[in-house]
Write a protein that binds this DNA or RNA. Structure first.
Length: 382
DNA sequence: CTTGGTTGTGTTGGATTTCT
DNA sequence: AGAAATCCAACACAACCAAG
């Protein structure tokens, strides 16, 4: 992969990189709450669900600056046929990939068919939980969390319901990661009443999609905004954005992709199990400049281009939905001329279609090559 | 020790988008 | 069109740290 091309494909040019404050709505207080309120028996039941392993996640402090540095290095890429959306970041002198593969290996959440909309799935289910605990009224995340907190450890909610409500609490506060003034997703409260259906739901696809949407839009247009702001008389010069969704998955992936982060002491390996989110404790929140000086300015940085599942991981249920041939091991770099920057929305669709028509043959060939190389690499690794 | 800068976090008004 | 849901961003504040 030519460095020059990679450089040109950056969504934000090197000279336009800007400092910013970053926060996420992914709140791990849910796990602390659940641990303090559920009985040992209820915790065992929770542990057996699709979110059970998250009980063992260590401290997860978000380093907004670390995430920001990576997001600043996003490349323009072309999606290949039905390829699920994939990020490529130009870090050091190479690219690193964040796709559903990485999300899956980090979180242990299943990737699967999500053709049917979630609210449709639970349409026919009754609203028993909603009615018995909230009289079918509005339930905002904050209200729900407070209600849960006030239950205390000695409540009279039965074991099964307690586990179901805890699942929703974790889903809303941590995985979905949104403003806590928003309402919880009522369809999830219906779905959870059928635990089997809930456990089999492709949460990985759902949460990854949400996280991807937020990560891919949070920087759009912000470099220009930053410049404007610097020149304006506004008192408030700092750029700031919030990331929705499950940012922790992005950070833990980044820790594995850029080993220097852990070497500098910002994260420490506490385990060697699956999924990988259980292996890391995150404590460091170094500044933007410090990160540049110690990590991002280096061109010979050691990185992991993409995550490769271990022998153990390929046997896991959550891995079953992944078809690796759908995930290119090299980005389909798009040059600035082909990118959508500065193109009006109306014209954009047509432009894209033209582009695809022009390069379809090449893209096909390239993908075949990519898949071949990938298969060979996989064989070598095994 | 103080000071000033940077960070994450919490709270909030209000703008924007989506739903009905 | 109007309401509800969702998101943006302006603060305030405490913890931390490095320089003076």
């Amino acid at each position: 992969m030519s460095q020059k091309k990679l450089h040109e494909s950056l969504k934000i040019k090197e000279d336009d990189r800007f400092p910013s404050r970053v926060s996420g709505y992914c709140n791990w207080e849910s796990i602390r709450l659940i641990k303090s309120i559920l009985s040992p028996k209820q915790l065992d039941l929770f542990r057996a669900t699709c979110f059970g392993h998250f009980l063992d996640v260590s401290d997860m402090v978000l380093s907004g600056q670390f995430c920001h540095h990576i997001l600043l290095r996003e490349c323009h890429v072309r999606d290949v046929d039905d390829t699920p959306s994939t990020f490529w970041f130009y870090v050091g002198n190479e690219v690193i990939r964040f796709s559903a593969v990485e999300f899956c290996l980090v979180t242990g959440l299943t990737i699967g068919d999500s053709s049917e909309s979630p609210s449709n799935i639970s349409k026919h289910m009754d609203k028993r939980l909603h009615q018995s605990y909230f009289q079918d009224g509005k339930v905002h995340v904050k209200v729900f969390a407070n209600w849960f907190r006030n239950l205390g450890p000695n409540n009279n909610v039965n074991d099964n319901d307690m586990v179901k409500l805890a699942l929703i609490l974790f889903l809303e506060m941590t995985l979905v990661g949104k403003d806590d003034r928003n309402a919880i997703q009522y369809w999830a409260l219906q779905l959870v009443d059928d635990l089997d259906a809930f456990n089999n739901f492709p949460w990985g696809t759902f949460i990854n999609g949400r996280t991807f949407d937020s990560l891919s839009t949070c920087l759009v247009g912000r470099d220009d905004k930053y410049k404007e702001r610097l020149e304006s008389p506004a008192k408030w010069k700092t750029e700031k954005y919030n990331v929705y969704g499950f940012v922790t998955s992005f950070q833990v992936w980044a820790i594995e992709a850029i080993p220097k982060w852990a070497m500098l002491g910002h994260a420490s390996r506490v385990n060697n199990v699956t999924p990988r989110i259980l292996n890391w404790k995150c404590t460091g929140t170094p500044s933007y400049v410090e990160l540049y000086d110690n990590i991002f300015k280096y061109k010979n940085l050691t990185i992991s281009k993409f995550l490769v599942p271990s022998d153990e991981e390929v046997t896991k249920l959550y891995w079953a939905g992944i078809d690796q041939s759908h995930f290119p091991i090299d980005p389909m770099i798009v040059s600035p001329e082909e990118c959508d920057c500065g193109v009006d929305d109306d014209d954009y669709e047509d432009d894209v279609h033209e582009d695809i028509d022009n390069v379809e043959g090449d893209a096909e060939k390239k993908m075949m090559m990519v898949r071949m190389i990938y298969n060979i690499q996989m064989l070598v690794m095994i």
